[in-house]
Design a protein around this nucleic acid. Structure first.
Lengths: 231, 231
DNA sequence: CGCGGCTTTGATGTTCATCAAGTAAAGTGG
DNA sequence: CCACTTTACTTGATGAACATCAAAGCCGCG
């Protein structure tokens, strides 16, 4: 993890309009002053379950996973999140510690704003408060919905769903570099590593995808969609 | 569903302090005026997936389930909620329609407040806004956490977990009337009705519980806790 | 270059869904 | 209130889906 200082001011930040649009200049200054930029490398843990929550973070670039570790030490991934997702909005107002861990899957840049600053803004700017409510609601919905979509499918459908998710929501391409290991895929879809691999191999044999190492290419999109729907 | 008028004013409502504590008298009046009371019978659907969200509800008494129906018509229960849970806080600020259905499991009384009224209060009273954020955060956390707890266990552990949940969080007794059918238990723990029944029968044979029809009694609490932990 | 983590495949067994079939209970209309 | 219909409950038999165990090749990295 490294502290950086790439952005001079939030004024021109792309993510400004997602959440901070309703702030006036004075309020912006408060954010700008309390704001810190961090860069996390692939694999680095950003926050661990149980860490105190005293700031609000959002992703400027990269990819992260939200996960929980069970008593056997096995991780269960709740969701993958990309820039624009306000990952630390979960639990932030209901608990003083993180209920989930957050780790960087790819090199990830975050902006970190003191929780106190956020609270003051919510108190002083009601439009902003509604905006936070909206974002928080959305991210919760996404996590719940993602879990639901996974749980109602069986392995093939789950893998297909995940590949489509990566292709459509993260990379916007039919060919991409798998950002996560096969074990992590398993942790995400509640399946063992072996079955995950077996299913991927099967997809390759069936000509639905082609892959070499981490490079994935969806060669039969329609078919994959059909597997995701019916499986 | 029936419209009632049991409560004269919110002033003495037990649930006032959970959320509405920070309102002044004038704000209270607004709530009181826009407020409607409804009673739903066992089994009645309160809201269906896709219904427009234009009010905010909370449970005064009873028990409800949040659920989604998949394309095969099979229901998946996301959570059971009891008085004090602000069930309609999910999705309320991120979507204009319900993403989940809500149904009464026992006779349920709700207070229904126009969304517009809620929004005005959030805008005018920042302490209230923080309170809503807190409640929303909590209910999302609970749903996510519940799903996580279920998904990491296998059948026996899931059933044990659910029985303990009902005993500890809903009824505060070791003996209670099962509020849901065996099929619904299955929908809640992502398991077939048959396996649910088989597992309950097994628990009875093993002397962990005794049951006749819907009446459940946990006879070996320690054992059930152990099954919930290890299973 | 060797160690540890990732990947892959096979063999085997367990868990769980499905199908079937019957009893019990609960709701419904005359 | 009773006959009828539907829904809930229960048990058994069978097979499919999936986990587990084992073994080996691969790859990146210190």
């Amino acid at each position: 993890m490294k502290l950086t200082n790439e952005i001079e001011s939030c004024n021109f930040c792309f993510y400004r309009k997602l959440l901070f649009d309703s702030l006036n200049d004075a309020e912006y200054q408060k954010v700008n002053v309390s704001r810190k930029e961090y860069v996390y490398n692939r694999g680095e843990i950003i926050r661990s379950e149980g860490d105190p929550i005293n700031s609000f973070m959002y992703l400027r670039s990269g990819l992260i996973k939200l996960y929980k570790t069970d008593k056997n030490g096995k991780d269960h991934i709740l969701s993958l999140n990309k820039p624009g997702d306000f990952i630390s909005l979960l639990s932030i107002f209901s608990d003083s510690v993180y209920k989930y861990s957050i780790a960087a899957i790819e090199e990830t840049k975050v902006c970190d704003i003191e929780l106190q600053t956020l609270n003051k803004l919510i108190t002083s700017n009601s439009e902003f408060a509604l905006r936070v409510l909206n974002r928080m609601s959305r991210i919760s919905d996404d996590v719940i919905d993602g879990q639901f979509e996974i749980s109602k499918r069986q392995v093939k459908g789950r893998i297909a769903y995940l590949l489509l998710f990566l292709s459509e929501n993260i990379y916007h391409k039919h060919e991409f570099r798998l950002p996560i290991t096969r074990r992590e895929i398993g942790e995400l879809i509640s399946m063992t590593t072996e079955n995950t691999i077996r299913t991927l191999s099967e997809f390759r044999k069936d000509g639905v995808i082609s892959m070499s190492g981490k490079i994935m290419k969806i060669t039969d999109y329609k078919r994959l969609e059909s597997i995701s729907k019916t499986g």
